[in-house]
Computed example of a mutant assay.
Amino acid sequence: MRLILAAVGRLKDAEAQLFERYTKRFDASGRALGLGPLKLSEISESRAAGADQRKSDEAARLMKAAEAADARVVLDEHGKALSSEELAHWIAQQRDEGLKAMAFLIGGPDGHGPEALEAATLKLSLGRLTLPHGIARMLVAEQLYRATTILSGHPYHRA
């Protein structure tokens, strides 16, 4: 199952290096599990005047980047909080049900527009903290890598 990470904004140098590190690890370890590769699609922030217009514009572009996905995981502060193990097993379940592609969507500073929220297979919360988008993106990449280690029994995840 291919994975897409569609996100508003661009990563800075250090953020990009860490994201790339976990993406490479995920791609290498996921291959044997039928997961990957992970493709990044960066969307520029909307220049619309109002927050609702910005969210709608960004949601439309995120949805276009994720149009090949059979399932969409929308990162949302009001979403469901899963443990690493629960996320790993949910991803495996989606793969086992025959999904060909899954997208993780990270919205802009104003959040997601209703188009993205309504299309979500899963609304996922990374916790109650407000995180910069670059850190959220790195955290998703690390959790995807962690999911492959959980599913393969690798000792990286020591729970």
Rank of each mutant, 00 (worst) to 15 (best):
M1Y: 07
M1A: 12
R2W: 04
R2N: 12
L3W: 12
L5E: 00
L5I: 09
L5V: 02
A7G: 10
V8S: 02
V8K: 00
V8H: 02
V8T: 07
R10V: 05
D13Y: 09
Q17W: 08
F19A: 07
F19Y: 13
E20Y: 03
E20K: 15
Y22H: 14
Y22F: 15
K24L: 13
R25C: 05
F26W: 08
F26Y: 13
D27T: 09
S29V: 06
G30E: 05
A32N: 07
A32K: 15
L33S: 11
L33M: 05
G34W: 11
L35C: 10
L35T: 01
L35Y: 10
G36I: 07
G36R: 00
G36F: 06
I43C: 09
S44P: 11
S46Q: 04
S46K: 06
A49F: 08
A49W: 07
G50C: 10
D52L: 13
R54S: 01
S56H: 13
S56Q: 13
D57A: 15
E58G: 01
R61F: 07
L62A: 01
M63A: 14
K64T: 11
K64G: 04
A65G: 09
A65V: 04
A66C: 10
E67K: 14
A69W: 09
A69E: 04
D70S: 04
D70A: 05
A71Y: 12
R72T: 05
D76W: 09
K80A: 08
A81F: 08
L82K: 01
L82R: 02
E86Y: 03
E86A: 15
L87I: 00
L87C: 01
L87V: 01
A88N: 04
A88D: 02
I91K: 02
A92W: 06
A92K: 07
Q94F: 03
G98M: 06
L99V: 14
K100M: 03
M102L: 15
A103H: 00
A103W: 04
F104R: 00
F104P: 00
F104I: 08
F104Q: 00
I106N: 02
G107H: 04
G107E: 00
G107T: 05
D110F: 09
G111D: 01
H112S: 11
G113H: 06
P114T: 11
E115K: 15
L117S: 09
L117T: 05
E118D: 14
A119V: 05
A119T: 06
A120V: 09
L122D: 08
K123V: 02
K123E: 07
S125T: 11
L126S: 02
L126P: 03
G127Y: 13
G127T: 09
L129T: 07
L129Q: 13
T130E: 10
H133I: 05
H133M: 06
H133R: 14
G134D: 07
I135M: 15
I135Y: 12
A136Y: 08
R137A: 04
M138I: 14
M138A: 14
M138G: 09
L139Y: 03
V140M: 15
V140I: 15
E142V: 06
E142T: 09
Q143N: 10
L144M: 12
Y145K: 03
R146I: 03
T148R: 04
I150N: 00
L151K: 06
G153P: 11
G153K: 02
P155S: 14
P155A: 10
R158S: 07
R158L: 00
R158V: 09
A159Q: 14
